[in-house]
């Protein structure tokens, strides 16, 4: 699985807010323009991101093969017909076009995941979403990162325990009910302990934030992100201001 790894690549040195802007901007661009030009922009940004993060496309393919396999199903589903031609090329191509636009977004988000520590993402969320909601989101996301492996471990342990007691022979509903009931019980015990721990540590609305600072090289990245995010507006401009013969 692809996770953060410390490094000294260009992408590692960038501010997380700029990188998030490029991700969101690219997602908007590729969905607004399912055209060759849109694919070219998406491909260029993806290749630049991979180079900036010094991440091999092969490792992305390996990490996200399930996603790519799901996407590949689309054109097949779109083309299959319950009638004489059995497989229609036109709808399959349409489907391939809409599937292809997701690919650069997956690559760019993989670079983000590889080059951005969770602490920075949390600080970025806390800075971008204003007020108390943003603070709760910042803390909450950090807690989800922390608790996910623990709760997953709980569930696996419960499943093993159910199996060890011959649970495989019980009806599905019964098995699921046991796993869920124990899982919820353990999770809420953890939530209660977490509540106590947060109160004991004077959990406050105004804690000390990790420092985030924009440097010179972050501005072009942010500009690219904003330009990509606003790209659906560009089509309106030439038609209105520059008469196209």
């Amino acid at each position: 699985m692809l996770t953060y790894e410390p490094g000294d690549s260009v992408a590692h040195g960038l501010d997380p807010r700029g990188k998030l802007a490029v991700q969101f901007g690219l997602a908007i661009t590729v969905f607004a323009y399912p055209t060759p030009a849109g694919f070219a922009v998406g491909g260029l940004v993806a290749v630049a991101a991979l180079a900036a993060g010094r991440l091999s496309p092969v490792s992305v393919l390996r990490a996200y093969w399930v996603v790519f396999a799901f996407l590949a199903v689309g054109p097949i589903l779109g083309g299959v017909a319950l009638g004489d031609p059995w497989f229609r090329v036109g709808p399959a191509l349409d489907s391939l076009r809409s599937v292809a636009r997701v690919v650069p977004v997956v690559f760019v988000s993989a670079v983000y995941v590889r080059t951005t520590p969770v602490r920075e993402t949390r600080a970025a969320i806390q800075r971008m979403v204003p007020g108390r909601v943003g603070r709760l989101f910042g803390v909450g996301v950090g807690l989800v990162f922390r608790f996910f492996p623990v709760v997953l471990g709980d569930l696996r342990a419960i499943r093993t325990a159910v199996r060890a007691r011959g649970g495989e022979r019980r009806p599905l509903r019964d098995r699921v009910r046991r796993i869920l009931a124990r899982g919820l019980q353990r999770s809420f015990l953890r939530a209660d302990r977490l509540t106590l721990a947060l109160r004991a540590r004077c959990f406050a609305w105004n804690p000390t934030l990790p420092a985030l600072r924009f440097r010179g090289r972050d501005y072009p990245v942010l500009a690219l992100g904003l330009a990509l995010a606003c790209s659906p507006l560009f089509t309106l401009v030439p038609g209105r201001f520059i008469p196209v013969a």
């Binding site: 909450g140 807690l143 608790f147 996910f148 709760v151 899982g183 953890r190 939530a191 209660d192 977490l194």
Partner: peptide, 14 residues
Amino acid sequence: LAAAAVLAALTAAL
């Protein structure tokens, strides 16, 4: 907040 964070983690685990 604690309940929401743990329930989000539980959803992720499920």
